[in-house]
């Protein structure tokens, strides 16, 4: 992870907000003022517990949700408001892999048609050429030709996830949002899928936004990691840096919960237990969102929301206490 400034920014997220109207006048603030960049060719991991807005960010970047406020730029172009040909062009370049391999494949469609959906939509190929591409994609994700004429329910979870990946690859994208692609799979299958994603990245020069709630798996695949809490990005750093010197108390707590294989090491480790529950994203507390569960909380935390500030090179934290330490 050399100097990230040299790298070309592929996706820029600026002050992104996404609110859902729950009922009249009541909003669920799924993503509340988040900014970060994704560089070309890297993998940015995004972690946080369920309901913190990770998936919403992923979907808003791809233009599936309209942002409430803020901008997402892809290769210098704003994503929202794209229409017609330009929208299609963008959707060819940015793709998505889903969490639930059982829900993400249409049960009424044959595998070949599922994989070729992008090819059909963008009219990339027809007839024999289309099938040739489908077979090629199947091989690429570790399945074989015979699987093309089958239906999703005939496959195991891991196989289905491969089909989902082949579908995303069919349009030859540059950028893929991996929305918890492994959390619904068996642990033994998880490694297979992650290795495959890494191989594909090398082979095709892909950029990933890798969303997960399992921080150890994210560490394995990511160049940089962003930690989210209740719709906010609280810490963003190089993968190694984040693991060796986490700054935000929430990150520290998360890391302390990662199991360690070595029992001696594990015994030395002190587990930070968080008190209380995550507040509802409908009723966000004033000031720092984490303060009610934070043992370092000071009066200022209840007053002012801490902004995400760079504390060292490539390492940003949103915490009043951290900036004071510096």
């Amino acid at each position: 992870m050399a100097d990230s400034k040299d790298k070309k920014v592929l996706v820029r997220v600026k002050n992104l907000k996404k609110y859902f109207e729950v009922s009249k006048g009541v909003y669920l603030k799924a993503v509340d003022d988040v900014s970060f960049d994704i560089y070309k060719g890297e993998t940015l991991g995004l972690v946080g517990e369920s309901g913190c807005g990770k998936t919403t960010i992923g979907r808003t970047i791809l233009g599936i949700y309209e942002p409430t406020d803020g901008v997402v730029e892809f290769d210098g172009q704003p994503v929202s408001g794209l229409k017609g040909k330009k929208a299609k062009e963008f959707k060819k370049r940015a793709q998505m892999i889903f969490q639930d391999p059982y829900a993400s494949l249409n049960p009424r469609m044959m595998v070949s048609n599922i994989i070729a959906e992008g090819i059909d939509i963008h009219k990339l190929a027809t007839g024999e050429e289309r099938m040739r591409r489908v077979y090629e994609l199947l091989e690429k994700v570790g399945l074989n030709k015979e699987h093309a004429n089958r239906f999703p329910h005939e496959f195991s979870g891991g196989q289905r996830q491969r089909i989902g990946i082949a579908r995303a690859l069919a349009v030859e994208p540059e950028f893929i949002v991996c929305d918890e692609p492994i959390s619904a799979l068996d642990v033994s299958i998880q490694a297979q899928i992650v290795n495959m994603l890494q191989d594909l990245q090398k082979e095709l020069g892909l950029t990933y936004l890798f969303i997960a709630h399992d921080i150890s798996m994210v560490k394995y695949i990511s160049d940089r990691i962003g930690v989210m809490y209740l719709g906010k990005l609280v810490e963003l750093a190089d993968s190694h840096e984040l693991f060796t010197s986490p700054k935000h108390p929430y990150t520290q707590a998360l890391l302390s919960a990662v199991p360690i294989a070595d029992p001696d090491e594990a015994a030395k480790k002190k587990r930070i237990k968080l008190e209380g529950d995550v507040p509802s994203p409908i009723n966000v507390p004033k000031g720092c969102r984490f303060r009610e569960r934070c043992k370092y909380a000071k009066p200022i935390c209840a007053e002012v929301e801490p902004p995400l500030k760079e504390v060292s090179k490539g390492h940003s934290v949103a915490c009043h206490m951290v900036s004071e330490e510096k």
């Binding site: 979907r59 060819k92 993400s104 959906e117 939509i121």
Partner: peptide
């Protein structure tokens, strides 16, 4: 998710 996948594919 498969409808969202189709939307993401354009």
């Amino acid at each position: 998710e498969y409808v969202i996948a189709a939307q993401a594919l354009g």
